[in-house]
């Protein structure tokens, strides 16, 4: 149990997927202008990461990894070079599926999350999460926990940034620094703040 708690803390704070690995920056910069939209996108990313991580783990372990086809008497086949294209296809399909399920069962949630879901297929943090879990050789449960933790970390970071940018309206930022410039500098400071969690052992 402690192992999983430590994994989740690591994914949320110490190795935050946005602030330490720079994944999902494009939508982070574009969406963090508005607090409401940030909450919606943050929730959607967390949700999609939590379900795509174990799905891609299954696909990799039983279909395309080295020797993964052993159950079909084909142990010498290694399809791992297909990893990027298969993962992105799985992610796009999962996003589509999630969109349809939410639309069917919870129109209210669809109203809030719906417009963000298509954006997520090309959010690097989702693909990055799946690629990391292969590289770090996580088990199924570890992958799920890692996916959820990464999503939560991304959620925290975008909400923090949206709130800072909201307050920033009252500040006198140099004209040429407005927009992306100041956001990058702020992200740097936020990243320093998150680094102070480093070294915490649970």
């Amino acid at each position: 149990m402690e192992h999983y708690i430590s994994l989740i803390t690591k994914a949320v704070f110490i190795e935050n997927i946005l602030l330490a690995y720079f994944l999902g920056m494009c939508s982070f910069l574009a969406i963090s202008k508005k607090v409401d939209a940030s909450i919606g996108l943050g929730l959607a990313v967390t949700f999609v990461l939590t379900i795509t991580a174990p799905t891609n783990w299954f696909i990799y372990t039983f279909l395309i990894g080295d020797g993964a086809l052993a159950w079909a008497n084909l142990p010498e086949i290694n399809l791992s070079f297909l990893k990027p294209i298969v993962f992105i296809a799985v992610i796009a399909a999962m996003v589509q599926l999630v969109e349809m399920v939410i639309d069917r069962f919870s129109p209210a949630l669809y109203q809030n999350l719906g417009i963000f879901l298509p954006l997520i297929a090309v959010n690097c943090s989702i693909l990055g999460g799946s690629l990391f879990l292969v590289e770090r050789e996580y088990t199924l449960l570890e992958s799920t926990v890692f996916g959820f933790g990464s999503g939560l970390g991304w959620f925290l970071a975008i909400i923090a940034m949206a709130s800072i940018r909201y307050r920033l309206r009252y500040s006198n930022v140099p004209l040429k620094l407005r927009g992306i410039g100041i956001t990058m500098l702020l992200t740097g400071l936020l990243s320093i703040a998150f680094m102070s969690f480093g070294g915490i052992q649970l």
Binding site: L19, M184, L185, T187, G188, S191, I192
Partner: peptide, 11 residues
């Protein structure tokens, strides 16, 4: 470390 990249790019 990562903050350096953000700050340099911002500048």
């Amino acid at each position: 470390l990562s903050p350096g990249a953000f700050i340099i790019l911002g500048l």
